[in-house]
Amino acid sequence: MRNTFVNALCDLAEQDERVWLLCGDLGYSVLERFSSRFPRRYINVGVAEQNMVGVAAGLALSGKVVFIYSIANFPVMRCLEQLRNDVCYHNLSVKTVAVGAGLPYGTHGYTHHGIEDIAVMRTLPNMTVVAPGDPVETRLATAALLAHEGPGYLRLGKGGEPTIHQSAPDFQLGQALTLREGDDVAIIATGAILAEAVKAADLLAAQGIRAGVLSMPTIQPLDTAAVLRVAERSPLVVTVEEHRPVGGLGSAVAETLACAPGPHARLLTCGVTISPSVVGSGAYLRERNGLDAAHLAQRIAQALVGAPSAQPVR
């Protein structure tokens, strides 16, 4: 995803002189293709995220569209007040890009896990929160965030994510993308975990359970119409995210359902729930959190019959 993002940004910067890229001394072997082509619009600000956001705001107040790049929660939490006051309060075109959000930096440990970032970012005023599900969505989301005036957050995986979309979908900020039709259960996934959700739907199909799959690349603003549509058709809605369910997609969907007149589906939220002290690779941590395809299929099948093991993993 990170390579797709940088390639897309290079293409966009070729056309649009307003595009700048700042990084917080991270992105080695990835950002060079931008910095070598556009050296006057690229700055490594050093290990200083607060200043990175402030400088980006100053550039944006002078007419630039600034992408700021770092990993996991670094460009979100260390500089949260700069994002809130300097960027969102002023409604500036600063786009925060977090690479390796979720669990891809697995063995680096909890300091490198971006699993509360959606919760934080979606509460900020004027902020558009986007977590593409595959490289195709990444390319389209990068262009869409550039075209959108105002703050944006692009939450990316790391590298090697499979391509899910065989052709470019009609990508619009704030709109869900339907990947599979099926009304026995509706799976809504955001971010790079989408691949596991699609595989889980395949496993369920083999058991005769027809699972619909929605990719929800935009979490703020949420496509509430799409959520309500599937919640009316299916008895169970399942959210899947590499993030804590609290404050993330699970919460966003729960808020939507709770505010809607019933009857509608029950909700199963699947996210990161185990202790931050568990050590392992991204794949291992997905398994431990019940977020790999096999566990997801199992949890969904159990939830459909009301079994207690559908509860969050501990």
Binding site: G54, L59, H90
Partner: peptide, 21 residues
């Protein structure tokens, strides 16, 4: 030019403006 109130925000933003200029 800038909404302030929380301290420590003005100089980073000013640096960005100077860079843009």
């Amino acid at each position: 030019e800038l909404s302030t109130g929380s301290l420590g925000h003005g100089l980073p933003v000013g640096a960005g403006m100077a860079l843009a200029a």
